[in-house]
Amino acid sequence: MSIIEDGANIRLEGLCRVEDAEPLTVLLQSGRFETVDISSCDGLHSAVTQALLVFGPTIIGEAADPFVRDWIAPALRAQRQPDQGEV
């Protein structure tokens, strides 16, 4: 289990695989969560990344995995910025 509900925050832990995209979608769609914490994330499948991009929660934390930390997270944050005016 790599998706953990934690108040208004979702924690991604370990390797997030393709099948995790669906439960994450369900949670993000519920509107109950504002942030996704990736600090214990060891890898993000593209489908999971895509769900984060589509629903646009605030990404918090420094991921353990260097590729997620240095590339995926900044790319997600960069995409989110233009929309923030509307939020």
Binding site: E22, P23, T25, V26, Q29, S30
Partner: peptide
Amino acid sequence: GDADMIVSRRG
């Protein structure tokens, strides 16, 4: 076929 099907929720 050639895939699985799952039951889930949308709202």
